[in-house]
Simulated assay, not measured.
Amino acid sequence: MRVGLITPDAGHPLLAATAALLAPEHEVRVLDPEAGAAAAAGARADVYLLKARTPSALALARELERRGAPVLNSAAATGRCQDRTGMAELARRAGLPFAATRTFGSLAEAGASEQPAWPVVVKSRHSRKHDLVARVDGPAGLRELAAAGWEREPVVVQPFTPNSGWDHKLWVIGDRVFTGLRQSELATGPEEPGRFPGRLPGGVDELALRVGAVFALDVYGVDVITTADGDPLIVDVNAFPGVRGQAGAPEALAALALRRAR
């Protein structure tokens, strides 16, 4: 089989380990995601892994799909995870326990609206590296973010839900669910290293698989917090995360790629 990697970093630990597993019997090729749709002309793989989210990478993935090649995740599914407004609407329509989300064209627009009870969580509408994720305790906090350079950023605003200060990180590859705990970006106090519990809270693994079905994702991450009532609340979904430090993840990804290639 021929497996294509659409990535700017073929040395990423998950991809490198997966490629090493495949290499003895299969051919692994790396495609430059910034080459865009033009790179599809010479591409000849049975399945592609889309580990990039730029417009050029999505254009390449769409062209490969148009030519009949399976891409994990699809360009459409990857795009759905980049717009937090659409993400929340889709999740809540499907009955998933997703944080209530309001959308504003800028921080000034958010500040001028009738706000729910403070504090709130403010995030960039468009998910990307180094985007805005902040707890805001009142109007002055919005002004501080604007002064810090986020004044024109389209944002979503969610109620702040009191929790343990730790996010359940759920990573799914096909039907395999991996888990970890990461200190929340909103937590106060000294930063602590992530944890990798062997067991999941009851029902959270099934919840993670439901997310994949709703968003049509094959490889994805789900961030979940536990509310004061003990209920899970989804706060983010992302396509093809790093899944670092998870034993069995490269094996699961290699097996998924070969299943789809066949």
Rank of each mutant, 00 (worst) to 15 (best):
I6V: 14
I6D: 03
P8H: 03
L14R: 06
A16M: 02
L21G: 07
E27L: 12
V30C: 12
L31N: 02
A40M: 14
R44G: 10
R44A: 15
A45Q: 03
D46M: 06
D46V: 03
V47I: 09
L50V: 01
A52R: 00
T54G: 09
S56P: 06
A57Q: 01
L58S: 00
L58C: 04
A59N: 02
R62A: 15
L64A: 11
R67L: 14
R67Y: 05
P70S: 09
L72N: 06
T78P: 03
G79E: 10
Q82P: 04
D83K: 07
G86I: 00
M87G: 01
A88E: 12
L90T: 13
A91Q: 07
R92K: 05
R92L: 05
A94M: 04
G95L: 07
T103G: 11
F104L: 09
F104W: 14
S106H: 13
L107A: 06
A108W: 04
A108E: 15
A108F: 03
A108T: 10
G111H: 05
G111W: 05
E114H: 13
E114I: 13
Q115V: 09
Q115H: 15
P116Q: 08
P119M: 03
P119R: 09
P119E: 06
V122L: 12
V122C: 07
R128N: 03
H130Y: 13
V133G: 09
A134R: 14
E144M: 03
A147N: 04
A148H: 03
G149I: 00
V155G: 04
Q158D: 00
P159K: 00
F160H: 02
P162H: 04
S164D: 08
K169E: 06
L170E: 00
D175S: 15
F178Q: 02
T179Q: 14
Q183G: 13
A187R: 07
E191G: 12
P193D: 08
G194N: 14
F196M: 13
P197D: 10
G198A: 15
D205H: 14
L207D: 12
L207P: 08
L207S: 08
A208M: 13
R210V: 00
R210Y: 09
V211A: 05
G212V: 05
V214T: 10
V214K: 06
G221C: 10
G221I: 09
G221S: 09
D223Q: 13
V224N: 12
I225T: 07
G230R: 08
D231T: 11
D231K: 14
I234C: 02
V235L: 07
N238W: 09
N238G: 11
P241N: 08
P241F: 13
G242I: 02
V243Q: 04
A247W: 00
E251V: 09
L253M: 01
L256T: 01
